[in-house]
Amino acid sequence: MFTGIVQATCDVVTIEKNPGFHTLEVSMTSELTKGLQTGASVANNGVCLTVTRIEDHRVFYDVMEETLCVTNLALLQAGDPVNVERSLCFGSEIGGHILSGHIHTRATVRKLMHTSEHYDLELQLDEQWLKYIFYKGFVGVNGCSLTVGKVSTDSFMLHLIPETLALTNLSQLSEGDEVNIEIDTQTQVIVDTVERYLSERSLG
């Protein structure tokens, strides 16, 4: 489990492409690797990955084909920064909202508006997932817990504060880039339950 509060951006060192999976090597800070063990879960761009090897402060993960198809990890290149969060520990403060690290889909940056006063992103999302996005609700974007702004027929807005830009890789996005999306599970359950109820009622 994760909170969506990114702890650092860490650079991808190498990507070894094997049949059916990629091995991702990420250079992490000494603070992030303290106490980290093989088998632990770490979110990279919001994707829950299992640590397979640790060498000094370089951490290795095997990313399976299914994960590569759903997330933007398949688009990474050596030198790219990823948002990193260690898994939630019992008793830790939850500053964002609970995330599982299981990405539902990707969204495309349609528009980026950056002025001295604000930094806004418009993300285009498929209709099947947009029904779970609500104004003032929560969404995980590249592992960041963010509050949703205006929602339209095929996109939604995000209004980012300087602290978020300083600690994450969202400040480096360009139009056309793809970001990982994890929708709020509670919202999904409510929407699906209501849809099923209305469907059953119409048939009854």
Rank of each mutant, 00 (worst) to 15 (best):
V42D: 00
E16H: 14
E66Q: 11
L24D: 09
V70Q: 12
T50S: 03
V59F: 03
V82Y: 04
P81T: 02
C69S: 13
C89Q: 14
L24V: 12
L49K: 02
C10K: 13
V59L: 03
Q37H: 12
T33G: 06
I54Y: 11
S41M: 12
M64W: 10
N45A: 04
S27R: 15
S30V: 13
T9I: 13
L73K: 09
L88T: 06
T50D: 03
A78Q: 13
T50N: 03
L49W: 01
A40P: 00
T14N: 00
S87F: 11
E66F: 06
M28Q: 05
F90R: 08
P81R: 11
L88F: 13
N83Q: 01
S87V: 01
D56Y: 10
I54E: 06
M64F: 14
S27I: 15
V51P: 02
E25R: 11
D62I: 07
Q37I: 10
N18C: 13
F60N: 04
D62N: 07
T38M: 14
I15A: 10
A40H: 15
T9Y: 09
N45W: 03
F21S: 02
N45M: 08
V59W: 02
V59N: 01
G79A: 08
T50Y: 09
G46R: 00
S87N: 00
D56R: 10
R86W: 04
V13K: 07
N18R: 13
